[in-house]
């Protein structure tokens, strides 16, 4: 029998490495961050229970993605019929496509750090307010002196600007 401490160490290491990617996958498939947190926790439990069956040396994140996608479908069936989760078909289509472009998506997440520094102060203040955990749009709009509608509009513009910046950064990387 393998040393249980060693097994656990391996698991922790692999899980922490795969976590940002899993979070990204779940965010594509699920309607809210709260849903992502719940399914990620479930997924981590299943991964640990089945870790004996994982073959070291193969891709942990690929294996974890399969389980995470399955957990999304389960989540939809069991608890989220009324919570606007996409249909099984769309979950399958999106899931497969995310896994295909996993590497590129990880690079895009990293490029975001550069792009965030290029925002104007007013834009960054809004991003700060909106994406601080637990803050509601109403509060974010209030503290940045906007109406809620204007804040949604500004946020949507910022997201587009960031996507474009990320695209530029990715092209730079290739060049």
């Amino acid at each position: 029998m393998e040393n249980p401490d060693k097994k656990y160490e391996d698991f922790v290491r692999l899980f922490l490495q795969a976590e940002p990617g899993l979070r990204g996958l779940l965010r594509v498939l699920l309607p809210s961050v709260t849903d992502v947190d719940e399914v990620l926790q479930e997924t981590s439990l299943v991964l640990w229970k089945k870790f004996d069956r994982f073959e070291m040396g193969t891709s942990f994140s690929a294996w974890a993605s399969v389980i995470a996608r399955f957990e999304v479908l389960k989540y939809r069936r069991e608890r989220a019929r009324d919570r606007h989760v996409f249909s099984d078909e769309v979950v399958e289509l999106l899931g497969a496509q995310v896994v295909e472009s996993g590497e590129a998506l990880a690079r895009e997440r990293r490029a975001l750090q550069t792009c965030l520094t290029k925002l104007r102060d007013t834009e960054r203040a809004l991003v700060t307010a909106v994406y601080t955990r637990g803050a509601a749009m109403k509060e974010a709009a209030e503290v940045t002196g906007r109406s809620v509608a204007a804040a949604y509009k500004a946020l949507s513009r910022i997201r587009m600007a960031l996507l474009q910046c990320i695209e530029r950064e990715m092209r730079k990387e290739v060049a």
Partner: peptide, 17 residues
């Protein structure tokens, strides 16, 4: 949509300074 939500997931938690 995947790129959009990937950005969203990376932004989440970027909140505090």
């Amino acid at each position: 949509f995947i790129r959009y939500m990937n950005l969203e997931s990376a932004l989440d938690g970027c909140g505090s300074p």
